[in-house]
Amino acid sequence: MGKNYWITDKPIQVNDCIAKVIRPKAGAIDTFIGTVREFTKGKRTLYLEYQAYAEMAEKKLAQIGDEINEKWQDTETAIVHRIGRLEISDIAVVIAVSTPHRNDAFEASRYAIERIKEIVPIWKKEHWEDGTKWIGDQKEKTSYQEKLPTEEEMSDD
């Protein structure tokens, strides 16, 4: 039912994503869940705000699924990303990949989250106690005042 790659403004149900990739040929489903972290290098996040170019983001998520299918054999991938205001520990993204054998599923889900951070038009805005900032805007990374995070602190791994 429905598509395998989608953007939602509602809380994510992990099982909705997993259900998309369950199939008899699979012997493994690897699930990655990205959640909102409270502290990044000692700096407290109050909440995050995500924005997406939703139609294009869904296309790019599907492209990642196609890339996975080229790199590993016989995969089925589903990815959902949430937008809007997210509180600490809320789920921002879920990736599920099913494959016949476990190693491919582990590798492919790792690949998917790295590619999301490269090509999918989704942005997050940090809301701290002392300010806000859209993350990923590299040109601004050199201009932080002392109270704001350093470039290293902003990197999101």
Partner: peptide, 10 residues
């Protein structure tokens, strides 16, 4: 036409 600043999803 869309201007896409460096992305930060995930």
């Amino acid at each position: 036409v869309a201007f896409i600043p460096p992305v930060s999803g995930g």
